[in-house]
Design a protein around this nucleic acid. Structure first.
Lengths: 166, 166
DNA sequence: GGTGAATCGTCTGTACCGCAGATGATATTA
DNA sequence: TAATATCATCTGCGGTACAGACGATTCACC
């Protein structure tokens, strides 16, 4: 394909979803390759991140945030609990719910993963300049958090944080 | 990322993959909702787009572009051929391969879909200003197309971030 | 205070979907 | 011609998500 002129390059369709899917696929493959310690690869990394950084009150909230089914969350957390990465704690306020908290080992594993994932992302976005990467991340996050008509009207416009660390 | 211990804002995980996955999920849901005429919903839309706009020579190239298995492509195209949207034509140059071309009905359906998808994207990116949407699309496309094998192989140089051994 | 509806997490069964392997047809090379 | 590789297809298997039902618990309402 390097011999073909630029106009006939496959994938020249400016397809929003195709770009998203391709990027996510590439990103996921790299994260999978770096996720030796986690069950479920990319999904596990996202789950552990949501457990640690997004303080979701319950298992159902966790599932809704990650966009997966409640029944799936059950055996997903089974695997994580079996590896000693998270714990199910009874919520004293609502004894139906379970509070999912990360163990020390979970925090440790996540920290190691985050470093590797950051390196993988830099590799993935090698075609963009640093300023463009920052811009892409910001736009993605804003678009992702601002989606849906069921948006929280109380959500104040974030992004007063300034430029993220390089 | 800066993990400020005092900060406990919900959903504040600046997770690249999470943004990608969320956006893709939302986009896919909207495209699915608009894909009455297509099999396989979002996947079908992407397939038909690749068939029409990206002139891929063979079924295998199509599969590689879309990131799906060859065997999956077989019954995916079976469904499309059954609906009269595409045709398998024998490639005179290589009679093993099949050239996948869209029928008139396929072009028609795709045109209608593209209009609906454009509207859905505008709705999805309602939180962004027009200039930001354009910027996001461009950055996404550049990042997605820049991850191909036609990138020069010198990018394997590890940056000075000092990743863990691996 | 009591009753029914709703929610949370779990379990069970089912259907789907992607992947590995094998197969027939064809192209390429020795 | 023989041998090997590639293309598309078919078959079987494993995993995974989804619908539904279930006990436990909370909430709404009278």
């Amino acid at each position: 394909m390097s011999t073909t002129p630029t106009e006939a390059r496959p994938g020249r369709h400016s397809l929003f979803g195709w770009s998203l899917a391709t990027l996510l696929r590439e990103w996921s493959a790299r994260v999978d390759a770096a996720a030796d310690d986690l069950p479920q690869g990319t999904r596990g990394y996202q789950l552990l991140t949501a457990v640690v950084h997004g303080n979701l009150p319950s298992q159902a909230a966790l599932a809704a945030t990650l966009g997966i089914d409640r029944t799936v969350m059950t055996y997903l957390l089974d695997a994580f609990e079996g590896c000693g990465l998270v714990e199910r704690q009874l919520d004293p306020a609502d004894r139906r719910a379970r509070r999912i908290v990360a163990t020390d080992k979970g925090l440790e594993v996540l920290a190691a993963m985050e470093a590797r994932v950051a390196a993988a992302e830099d590799d993935l976005l090698a075609g963009l300049e640093p300023a463009q990467r920052t811009s892409l991340r910001e736009l993605l996050e804003r678009a992702a958090t601002g989606t849906g008509p069921d948006e929280d009207p109380c959500r104040t416009v974030v992004e007063a944080t300034g430029p993220p660390p390089g």
